[in-house]
Simulated assay, not measured.
Amino acid sequence: MEKSFHRFSELFAQLGLRTDEAGIGAFLKTHSPLPTDMLLADAPFWTPAQATLLREELLDDADWAEVIDRLNAALRAPRGRS
């Protein structure tokens, strides 16, 4: 079975978020850093549908798992707020 490689923009589209570079950057800046003891899908900024999508895709180890892991890491990196 061939695995797909998904980009942040595709994941953001699945989540109903802005998919352009500025929108992704703003999202990461606004919501980082995520506490180390909080699961990505439990973050308070997700809608119930977004949280469900993240949980299901990670549990199924679906094609989206890799990009969700990258999003998780990006949200845990400290970022300055202006």
Rank of each mutant, 00 (worst) to 15 (best):
A22N: 05
D42C: 08
T19E: 11
L28M: 03
L40S: 05
F45D: 07
L11R: 01
A77W: 00
F27K: 12
D61R: 07
F12Q: 03
E10I: 12
K29H: 12
R18G: 10
A77S: 03
R18S: 12
L11Y: 02
E56T: 14
L34F: 10
S9L: 08
F45I: 06
L28S: 02
A26Q: 09
A22E: 11
R76H: 09
A74Y: 00
S32L: 05
L40M: 11
D60S: 08
D37S: 12
P78R: 13
D63F: 10
Q14A: 15
K29T: 14
W46L: 00
D20C: 08
F12N: 08
F27A: 06
A65F: 01
E21I: 14
L59E: 10
D60N: 06
A41E: 05
P48G: 15
S4M: 13
L34N: 02
D61N: 14
R70N: 05
G25Y: 02
L58T: 13
K3Y: 05
G16L: 03
R7D: 06
S82F: 04
W46H: 06
L59K: 07
L39R: 13
L53I: 12
E56P: 01
D60E: 14
L15C: 01
V67E: 13
P44N: 10
A65Q: 06
D20Q: 12
V67W: 11
L54N: 04
K29N: 10
A77P: 01
F27I: 10
A26Y: 06
R70T: 10
R7Q: 14
A62V: 12
T52C: 14
R79K: 15
G23L: 02
A65S: 08
I24H: 08
Q50F: 07
L17N: 11
L75Y: 06
T47R: 06
A22F: 13
L54R: 00
F45T: 07
R79M: 01
L34H: 09
P44R: 06
T30F: 02
F12M: 05
A41V: 05
P44H: 04
A13P: 01
T47N: 09
W46R: 01
E56K: 02
L28K: 05
P35D: 11
T19K: 03
R81F: 05
A26W: 09
E21S: 10
S82A: 14
A13S: 07
F8D: 07
G25I: 14
P35V: 02
A26V: 13
A41L: 09
E66Y: 07
F5K: 15
W46I: 10
